[in-house]
């Protein structure tokens, strides 16, 4: 079995220098292997470190110790050691991340936001824009909004733009942080089908799903993230 994403012995703590150097351990010795076509749901109470683990996997947070091995460009790369350029290449070609909130950019339309990573990944502008529009339609975002910057969109509309952006490039590894948090039932069903299709084409997926109904439909197994009991 092949594992496009493997975390081994991952630890992460924060040192807050502005608060007198207080040391906050969040993850200790986390090992997680995600197979092709598998969706692993992170479980655990709020504050246990699920989002932190997700951000470490994406390289958005540095890791204290351990390895994050991603199958990329015909080989394996350890994101804990990768430099900025290597990490950028992994994000461009291999690993996508859908966060809870869309980072809006003034003057950039919803359709452009969705097309951008597909163009960066090598698709023609025309093909990327066609697929962007199709995904936005599928997520029930009205055509009148496609050409507008999403700054004025509702939370649910922004989340759907974010989802279209994340599912556009067909990444081999996909990280989903609360992808259905502000969606109605119809759009939750669309997200479930997008995840199911991504699994069918072999994507390795890690997700945080507070919506247990969605989670039960897409997750192959749960991975417990437990809060660190500080023994000190």
């Amino acid at each position: 079995m092949s594992f496009p994403l493997v975390a081994e012995g991952l630890s992460k703590h924060f040192t807050l220098h502005l608060q007198g150097g207080v040391h906050i351990p969040v993850l200790r010795d986390v090992t997680l292997r995600v197979a092709r076509g598998e969706c692993v749901a992170l479980a655990g109470p709020s504050g246990a470190g699920k989002s932190t683990l997700m951000r470490c996997l994406y390289g958005n947070y540095s890791t204290g110790s351990g390895r994050i091995l991603v199958t990329h460009a015909g080989g394996s790369i350890d994101l804990a050691l990768a430099d900025a350029r290597a990490l950028r290449a992994v994000r461009r070609e291999t690993m996508g991340y859908v966060s809870q909130f869309l980072r809006v950019i003034p003057r950039v339309s919803a359709a452009e936001i969705v097309a951008e990573p597909m163009i960066a990944g090598g698709r023609s502008r025309e093909a990327a824009e066609t697929r962007a529009i199709a995904l936005l339609h599928r997520l029930n975002l009205p055509a009148t909004l496609h050409g507008l910057p999403p700054a004025t969109f509702s939370g649910g509309e922004q989340q759907r733009v974010n989802l279209a952006r994340g599912f556009g490039p067909d990444y081999p590894v996909l990280l989903l942080d609360e992808p259905t948090a502000s969606l109605d039932a119809a759009n939750r069903a669309v997200v479930v089908s997008l995840i199911t299709e991504a699994k069918a084409r072999g994507a390795a997926i890690v997700g945080i799903f507070h919506d247990t109904e969605v989670r039960d439909q897409v997750a192959d197994r749960l991975f417990d993230v437990t809060p660190i009991q500080d023994a000190a």
Binding site: N60, Y61, A84, L87, R88
Partner: peptide, 9 residues
Amino acid sequence: GITDRVLDD
């Protein structure tokens, strides 16, 4: 480092 990491962590 990569921009989002330097600014977020």
